[in-house]
Design a protein around this nucleic acid. Structure first.
Lengths: 202, 202
DNA sequence: GTCTATAGCTGGATAGAC
DNA sequence: GTCTATCCAGCTATAGAC
């Protein structure tokens, strides 16, 4: 799923490993997420990320052009995972209504499971207008529910509004849970589902 | 309009002014907001805030114990303004339903008018668990709609769920507007109102 | 692809004058 | 209440060895 498939690069045996990982890029991203959780956007530094990944301060620059590039990569990862997770949830649903409800529930759960990724993506840390492909990826997440929304709406405008309503509602509950306004995840999920159902009903 | 205008600088009457403003604390907070808008939470520094306010790097420490204290003060300000703005909107409404709808609309508009304040408060920049009084202030904002929610719900649990639903929904639309998912403010407000109405209807 | 080393800068926070 | 001066720490990014 990445550049250079399994060329030579004998994985199990005889790793020609220079000094560290076989997948530093990924290790850096993971370390970055941990750091974001612990220190927030203000305390996020590439140096500390390197430290946690167990590499030198210079190593990240072979994988990311700069600090912001790493963050952008994480946002991209967030959107991709959302797309994947939400697709699964939606496809498992039997009816259009169930699909929208499942989307809302999955949305809240995703935020709870990946708080750093979620907060980074929607917390205004990164200026997305500088990364058009991210805006694109963000909008594509909503495509996951266009089909069920169209099944329930009169016209395509109504479908889009319905999809937005479901997503916005889920987003609000997700944030409220992360913020501690709704302490229990299950409660947040249930209320999001309940609202989704009411928003689809006409 | 900067430090030392022309001459002795006695505007109203004999300001016992040491060197600068009459209200540096406020000026610092305003400058901090501007900076947050421009650079995001990661690029926020006290030094730059001082620069923009036209004072030395040491000056802020007479008004805030440290960087985080300034941010916490801004979050406090956000909650206070929200409480004030939302109260006004709710009280102007004729019916409970109108009150909840007005709250949602005011919520979205507030985020659009004060993006830095809003994003700082809900973007996860500050760890609120370290500032209990902020959590308190945040929850009190929701009190603004407990009365109309109780008018519409069967029991007090239902009232709280309704209030949360209205607020979460509004929050989602507010964020989506700030994120560019819903470009037009008016569209975001209308959709938030529409959803609020549907969530109140049973 | 990773390391060491380093340049150059910026930030947070304090001390002491006025 | 603000300034000047200063300390030290930490960060970004690059250069060059391996």
């Amino acid at each position: 799923m990445s550049p250079k498939g399994g060329g030579p690069t004998p994985p199990a045996a005889t790793r020609p490993v220079g000094h560290h990982h076989g997948d530093l890029r990924n290790a850096l991203e993971t370390a970055a997420l941990d750091l974001l959780v612990e220190r927030g956007p203000g305390g996020f530094t590439l140096n500390e990320v390197s430290r946690r990944a167990g590499v030198s301060k210079a190593a990240p620059y072979k994988h990311f052009t700069d600090k912001e590039d790493l963050l952008a990569s994480l946002v991209q990862r967030c959107y991709e995972r959302q797309h994947s997770v939400f697709s699964t949830a939606v496809m498992a649903a039997a009816t259009p209504v169930d699909a929208l409800v499942a989307f809302g529930a999955a949305y809240v759960r995703f935020a709870a499971e990946e708080p750093a990724l979620f907060t980074l993506t929607f917390g205004g840390t990164l200026d997305k207008t500088a990364h058009p492909h991210l805006e694109e990826a963000g909008k594509r997440v909503l495509d996951v529910i266009t089909a069920p929304a169209q099944d329930l709406a009169r016209d395509s405008g109504g479908a889009q509004r319905l999809a937005l309503a479901i997503a916005a509602n889920a987003h609000g509950f997700a944030v409220f849970h992360l913020q501690g306004v709704i302490a229990q995840l299950d409660a947040a999920v249930e209320q999001a589902e309940d609202c989704a159902r009411r928003l689809t009903a006409q």
